[in-house]
Design a protein around this nucleic acid. Structure first.
Length: 434
RNA sequence: GCGGUAGUGGUGAAGUGGUUAACACACUGGUUUGUGGAUCCAGCAUGCGAGGGUUCGAUCCCCUUCUACCGCCCCA
């Protein structure tokens, strides 16, 4: 019988230390940069009442109907792992009454963490994936839309990404959207039989989806389809114009994509995506998506409050960084490796390595009683800058050898000096090397 | 949810229905009774994703299942 084997759940990933350095780098830049924009971190549960998501996303959306990672807990509560960040943040916003007068508006928050969707894993998509997202509540100003877009662009540029495209569109307000929806259905209906089966289904459910169909049968009609821009109310039109003016004022190049839509029902007015232009990610080219929404806060029992935000896919971001050859942050390696020869040196080796660490250096030793040569090989593999050697003779004389691995120079020092004065010893050795 | 491809050691991989599953890298030890990136030597898969079946015999044939990858839906 084979031993039972365990595999990580489908669509999940282990992030090993080689990778977490990169993740931490990205996260720390996000925290720093978003902080500059006066966004502060919010942490909400990874799971919520199922209704939190079904209510917010709209019952017909794919996220609710087939992608929700949900289950009943021991108290028979219907629980869902969060498929996206906004709903939980809105729920927290309302539950903690963050709309209250003591809080400045807009209320700005960002989150970093895992999201879950029950779907087939493939390029750039997982069952557990990670998003860095932001939300800002309580202001309808187009300047806020633009600030958020600018912040996302700023973030990607800081990380060193190139070949990015900012695509924007507007969905208008409720009235604009409804009028457009009717017009679109009226336009497509006569061609119903010529549409792809997918789009035939979409026509009733969500006609806007037909617009971004990849099927050539549909794209023929999309070209001449009515544009949402012709159905905007005065307010939405004004908002849309201002967004573009402000983006231009900030020298952020953008592209209006009138076929862009959103998977979730609560968006209105500005929506945007940031995607890579080079085809290294193909199906997963979009690394950030966001937009303005309304009605959500009210839906959760708060006062009618507008919101705007975005979510960044961290896995996609990382694979894009890799594809563009943006160097991942590397571990710096060891400062010291303590080579100990002979079992009698075990105690002093432990004391030395601890003493080195107490000075703030990164230090490692051998625990396996290996040969001096092997230990030096390990030191080399760790790119250790120095090696401290203790054997029987050094132990007897209360000394140790310190070798500079770059220069090959080695000096013998008293253990007492090493314990109290290591940084000075190293400095002087550095001088000798030059 | 639908369709397609694949699954051999730590890694990259070769291989065949039948005694010891190539080769390379990595690793470990030795060559140097205690000093690194070189050379040479040696060691390193009781097993070929898992579970069944066919067969005298299967890593290689069949079925199921799991997982990964790609496309669709959708999305980060």
């Amino acid at each position: 019988m084979a031993k039972p084997t365990f595999q990580k759940p489908k669509g999940t990933a282990d992030l090993l230390p080689e990778q977490t350095a990169q993740w931490q780098h990205i996260e720390s830049i996000a925290r720093l940069l978003f902080g500059d924009y006066n966004f502060r971190e919010i942490r909400t549960p990874l799971f919520e009442n199922f209704d939190v998501f079904s209510r917010s996303a709209g019952d017909t959306s794919d996220v609710v109907t087939k992608e929700m990672y949900d289950f009943h807990d021991k108290g028979n509560r219907h629980i869902a792992l969060r498929p996206e960040g906004t709903a939980g943040v809105v729920r927290a916003y309302v539950e903690n009454k963050l709309y209250g007068p003591e809080f400045d508006k807009p209320y700005k928050a960002f989150y970093i963490g895992p999201m879950f969707r029950y779907e087939r894993p493939q390029a750039g998509r997982f069952r557990q994936f990670h998003q860095i997202g932001v939300e800002a509540f309580g202001a309808t100003a187009p300047a806020l839309d633009v600030e958020i877009i600018a912040m996302a662009v700023d973030f990607f540029q800081t990380l060193g990404l190139k070949n990015l495209k900012v695509a924007i569109n507007t969905l208008g307000d409720q009235a604009s959207r409804e009028a457009y929806r009717k017009a679109l259905i009226a336009y497509l209906k006569p061609h119903f039989d010529e549409l792809s089966p997918d789009s035939q289904a979409r026509l009733e459910k969500n006609p806007l989806r037909v617009l971004d169909s990849k099927d050539p049968r549909d794209q023929v009609f999309v070209e001449d389809a009515p544009s949402i821009l012709d159905f905007l109310s005065d307010d939405s039109s004004q908002h849309w114009q201002t967004v573009q003016e402000l983006l231009t004022a900030l020298d952020i190049t953008f592209e209006v994509d009138s076929t862009m839509v959103r998977g979730l029902d609560y968006y209105n007015d500005t929506i945007f995506e940031i995607m890579t232009v080079d085809d290294s990610l193909k199906g997963a080219a979009t690394i950030a998506g966001g937009g303005r929404y309304s009605g959500l806060v009210a839906e959760f029992g708060g006062p009618e409050t507008p919101g705007v935000g975005f979510g960044i896919g961290v896995e996609r971001l990382i694979s894009l960084l890799a594809a563009q050859g943006v160097a991942p942050v590397k571990d710096d390696g060891l400062d010291f490796y303590v080579v100990n020869i002979g079992t009698s040196t075990n105690v002093v080796a432990t004391q030395i390595v601890q003493a080195i660490r107490s000075f703030g250096y990164v230090a490692e030793r051998d625990y396996l009683g290996r040969s001096a040569k092997s230990q030096f090989k390990s030191a080399d593999r760790h790119h250790s800058r120095y090696v401290v050697t203790v054997g029987e003779t050094e132990l007897a004389n209360h000394v140790a050898n310190i070798k500079n691995m770059a220069t090959g120079m080695q000096q013998t020092v008293k253990l007492a000096d090493l314990y109290t004065d290591l940084p000075t010893i190293i400095d002087s050795q550095g001088d000798e090397a030059q």
